[in-house]
Design a binder for these strands. Structure first.
Length: 957
RNA sequence: GCGGCGGUGGCGCAGCAGGUUGACGCAGCAGACUUAGGAUCUGUGGCCCGCGAGGGCUUGAGGGUUCGAAUCCCUUCCGCCGCACCA
């Protein structure tokens, strides 16, 4: 489809609002704003302090999720959110707020590095070029950003503080008793004084050597290195966080397969904050869907830990269950194949009574276990899930003891139990769990019903075809030597058995979370270096603050080097490790110069976005990440926002559990350590919808350029051949991208801004319709013509009072637009401005008051044309800080209302009546209407419902 | 499978503390200005029947509550998104 381009001859009307005139107006006002610093927001420690009028204004901190400066540039889908926040910010300025609105760049990350590997261009070079391009694209849109506050996460002056925050986290531990993070020094003091004994079988603090102490503190630090199995992605040459791996075991970026590998990696103890991350969601103004996703990701479940003794060496298997009430129904146990206990307890031969089905055909338990483990390890997560339906497993040769019934229960290993959840071990209750039921059927294990079914199937499990699950029913078959749950309802039984277990020290009620710690290191070049060095004993030392920023060194070779995850002697080679001069250093960390090796992993690209809202507040502060007074002013807790945070944060829903969870976590650590007054980074979150586009594919499924497709009689053709059409994302590879630059050139930025917002509600996805853009262009043309004569350029407004009807239209528009803007309903705001403009277009002679109000109403949406018309109307000031019109309530109500007269619910007549018309009068008027009389057809009236002044409904007899 | 959101003209949508369905825009149709126009302006505008006056139908489908349902309740279908052996 060809682009509809207005091509009106310029000479026909020299002062017509054309794309060329729009371009001229827009460039001029963008320069004006820049010269005058129109969008600079004063801080409480600066300009604000000396200006009582400004200081009295309420503040608004309005943010977008900042962009990654990709080389592909922007398409029209990208700026939707930026336009929306800009309109909202402009509205807030005009309604008397001190508004902070700016935009930075999230510039570390894989694409720049991949590009560098391909082309040899340094990532900084390409990234900075991309930033320049993107800034130019964004400038054309007329976004009112405080440019002094913009930065990129790759600026050393910024990542200095990212590293600084890492050090704060490294130097903290979570004090469960206090319910907050505290400096590690406090913990050391507790160990030194003996107030806190060293845990487990460790020696007392005084007897530990440096390595022992470092190791112990590592168990507490909020940032710690550990050797756990991690997600290794050979395709990206790095490990990934759980949040970056999709459900089918592939990398979120690039869609490469991900494998488990055991590597020493940095982690952040986000699990310590699970409860607070969950609870504080309640105080946030976020879409319920996003809150729900975070709740699911955190995955809180209440239940109990129960110990099952195994063997004679005092060993036990600890399980987590949410159904401790069904303990009497636990007829076997299952461990995850990777469970460490398995190797310790496997006996040399199959015990008496081992069923053939349990052994997997192996001669000894050790052989069976080894074979099953090997089989499980060979499977990727994808295969493991695909095979999920058939329950496989093997007997370990070991029996444990059910602590309530004293019964011997066989212990299996099976795929369907995951090492990463709970304790990696379960008690299996086949009667009341579908997975256990399937496994028990496959392995001929006993099934015992311990909760009375309410569906009439009875307690004889032999006839069952599935597990029974009910939380309202009563317990049966649950009588032990000194405890009985029989007859108790499920919740009571839970409480009773939990108490019983706790009394004997063999279990306790607990809360389990699905959330895992956050894997925080990457084997890549283009990220923040860790401010960590290792001494000759391999002990990690934080760099002192004075050595920050630790700048990313130049390297020749950015390429990641893969390795063999099977071979324990190999590990990924990080790009930074190849730079021996940088890695090996002599530093004085307080005890004289010593040799150290630097950490060569880099931080994940989430690090820079975890705290950037704070840096906008005080971007040039080189003594602190943010001045406390400034932070309190913009971010602090306040009425309606009990945890503090940004007033409005707009971005895509794809960050629901990544960026938004990590940023909340860092916020809470900084709060605990006293660096900020806000517990939450983002008080109000809004997810903008996606701008979709049609993707046209040829018979082989390859996208063809959307702009070249022609439609005839509902058939789409490219080069004469039929193509298929589907609605999808907009993108270069799909050949359907429309850029903001081309729309700006064809119509102007104000038209683009209006069209993007007029398409529909901000949070709904909708297809881009190239033809429809012209509708908003026409609105601006009509508005222009209502003020400026197209032939002469003279201002045509008249200094007359508007008539009564125009006043009502005007004030209803002001009232509606004000409400819509405040609620981010820009589509309906635009419709109301259009109605007003259509009305005055008909009037022809436009009263100055009405024209000025219309210009101010549209100013947040179309700022360039508004500034231009405002100036031509004779005003010296900018509309940016001019007060928004205020509706006069006297004109918001109608003089007369249309009253609908229904007969039996069908509209038969309309009456024009005064708003205050008495009911009896209205009823009489309605019954006298000829159409009503006709509709009644002589039938009597049974009932008349009068809802004055809008409706009368007559029910015939 | 579980959870969430949503189905209204040819299209994007508006209306939802029950009360005129279709605001606003695109496309369409008619007209104006024009050498011409895919520019601009004016008008029109759900669907069906009817020359017309007018009548009937209509908010995914079916049912319910009500004088009255797009809006509330139940059942069902379709679409999109998230999670998924979570013990």
């Amino acid at each position: 489809m060809s682009q509809t381009t207005p091509t009106a001859p310029e000479n026909a009307a020299p002062h017509r609002y054309t794309a060329a005139l729009a371009a001229d107006i827009e460039a001029r006002w963008q320069d004006f704003w820049e010269r005058h610093g129109t969008y600079q927001a004063p801080n409480p420690t600066g300009d604000l302090a000396g200006d009582p009028e400004l200081a009295a204004r309420p503040k608004q901190f309005i943010m977008d999720m900042f962009p990654y400066p990709s080389g592909a540039g922007l398409h029209v889908g990208h700026p939707l959110g930026y336009i929306a926040t800009d309109v909202f910010a402009r509205f807030q300025r005009m309604t008397g707020h001190n508004v902070l609105h700016t935009l930075g760049f999230d510039a570390f990350g894989l694409p720049a590095e991949q590009y560098a590997v391909q082309t040899g261009t340094h990532p900084r070079t390409s990234t900075e070029a991309n930033i320049v391009n993107m800034k130019a694209q964004l400038r054309r849109l007329g976004l009112g950003h405080d440019q002094r506050r913009s930065f990129a996460t790759i600026d050393p002056g910024y990542y200095r503080w990212t590293q600084w925050i890492f050090l704060q986290i490294f130097n903290s531990w979570y004090d469960e008793d206090a319910g907050r993070a505290r400096p590690v020094d406090d913990l050391v003091k507790q160990f030194e004084s003996g107030e806190r004994p060293t845990p487990g079988d460790r020696a007392p603090w005084a007897e530990l050597d440096a390595a022992g102490r470092a190791d112990l503190l590592g168990e507490y630090r909020l940032a710690y290195a550990s050797d756990a199995p991690v997600n290794w992605c050979p395709g990206l040459g790095t490990v990934l966080a759980n949040e970056e791996v999709t459900a089918d075991g592939r990398s979120e970026r690039g869609n490469f397969p991900v494998y488990k590998a055991k590597l020493r990696q940095w982690n952040m103890r986000i699990t310590a904050y699970a409860e607070r991350l969950l609870n504080d969601l309640d105080g946030l103004d976020w879409p319920e869907a996003i809150k729900l996703q975070q709740r699911n990701w955190i995955g809180r479940s209440e239940g109990a830990r129960v110990d099952f003794p195994v063997g004679d060496a005092g060993r036990k298997i600890t399980v987590f269950t949410t159904r401790q009430d069904t303990l009497f129904g636990a007829t076997y146990m299952v461990l995850a194949p990777e469970h460490p206990l398995v190797g310790e307890v496997v006996p040399p031969s199959w015990p008496e009574g081992t069923r053939p089905a349990w052994t997997g055909g192996h001669a000894t338990p050790a052989e069976a276990v080894a074979a099953y483990r090997a089989q499980a390890a060979a499977k990727s997560d994808v295969e493991r899930q695909a095979d999920a339906k058939d329950k496989t497993g093997v007997f370990t040769g070991v029996y444990a003891t059910n602590p309530v019934s004293g019964e011997r229960v066989p212990v299996f290993i099976a795929d369907y139990v995951l090492m990463g959840y709970g304790t990696g071990a379960i008690m299996a209750v086949p009667a009341h769990d579908g997975r256990d039921f399937a496994f028990a059927r496959a392995f001929e294990l006993p099934i015992r019903c311990v909760v009375e079914p309410t569906d009439g199937r009875g307690t004889d499990t032999a006839a069952w075809t599935d597990a029974f699950d009910s939380h309202e029913a009563k317990l049966v078959n649950s009588r032990g030597e000194d405890v009985s749950l029989d007859g108790l309802a499920v919740p009571d039984a839970k409480a009773e058995i939990t108490r019983w277990l706790a009394e004997r020290g063999i279990g306790e009620g607990t809360v389990n979370y699905r959330l895992r710690d956050w894997l925080f290191s990457r084997q890549r070049y283009w990220g923040e270096p860790f401010p960590i060095v290792y001494d000759e004993d391999g002990i990690a030392h934080p760099l002192p603050e004075s050595m920050l920023p630790l700048e990313l060194p130049e390297v020749e070779d950015y390429a990641p080097r893969t390795f063999d995850p099977e071979d324990a002697d190999t590990s990924p080679e990080t790009p930074l490790s190849r730079n021996e001069d940088w890695v090996n250093v002599t530093l004085d960390l307080g005890d004289g110069p010593r040799r150290y090796r630097r950490e060569t992993n880099t931080m994940p690209n989430w690090a820079g976005s975890c705290w950037y809202e704070l840096r906008y507040l005080d971007p040039h502060n080189d003594r602190r990440l943010v001045d406390p007074e400034i932070e309190r002013y913009w971010m602090g807790p306040r009425e309606g926002a009990p945890h503090g945070g940004v007033d409005l944060y707009v971005g895509g829903a794809e960050h629901a559990v990544l960026h938004l969870l990590y940023a909340r976590f860092w916020s809470k650590v900084l709060f605990d350590l006293g660096h900020v007054s806000s517990r939450e980074p983002f008080h109000k979150l809004y997810n903008q919808g996606m701008i979709q586009a049609y993707v046209y594919r040829d018979s082989r499924g390859f996208p063809v350029p959307a702009a070249e497709v022609e439609e005839r009689d509902g058939v789409f053709r490219h080069d004469g051949r039929p193509v298929t059409r589907e609605l999808g994302k907009m993108g270069k590879s799909l050949k359907n991208a429309v850029t903001p630059d081309e729309i700006c050139t064809d119509y102007g930025a104000d038209t683009l801004r209006l069209y993007e917002l007029a398409m529909g509600p901000l949070d709904v996805s909708r297809p881009w319709d190239a033809r429809a853009v012209v509708g908003q262009y026409r609105l601006l043309q009509r508005l222009w013509r209502n003020v400026v004569d197209e032939a002469s350029g003279a201002v045509t407004v008249v200094d007359e009072e508007p008539d009564e009807e125009t006043l009502r239209v005007l004030h209803k528009a002001i009232d509606g637009v004000t409400q819509d803007m405040a609620n981010l309903r820009f589509n309906t705001a635009i419709a109301k401005i259009t109605e007003l403009n259509n009305h005055v277009t008909k009037v022809r002679r436009v009263p100055r008051r009405v024209a000025e109000a219309a210009v101010l109403l549209i100013a947040p949406l179309a700022p360039h044309i508004a500034e231009e018309l405002w100036r031509r109307l004779g005003h010296e000031d900018s509309v940016v800080h001019h007060p928004f019109p205020v509706a006069d309530p006297a004109y918001v109500v109608d003089e007369t209302v249309t009253c609908v007269v229904q007969v039996k619910g069908k509209v038969r007549a309309r009456l024009e009546v005064a708003p205050g018309v008495p009911e009896a009068e209205l009823e009489a008027l309605a019954l006298a209407e000829p159409a009503v009389v006709a509709a009644l057809g002589g039938a009597g009236v049974r009932k008349v419902i009068v809802r004055a002044p809008k409706l009368v409904n007559i029910v015939p007899a």
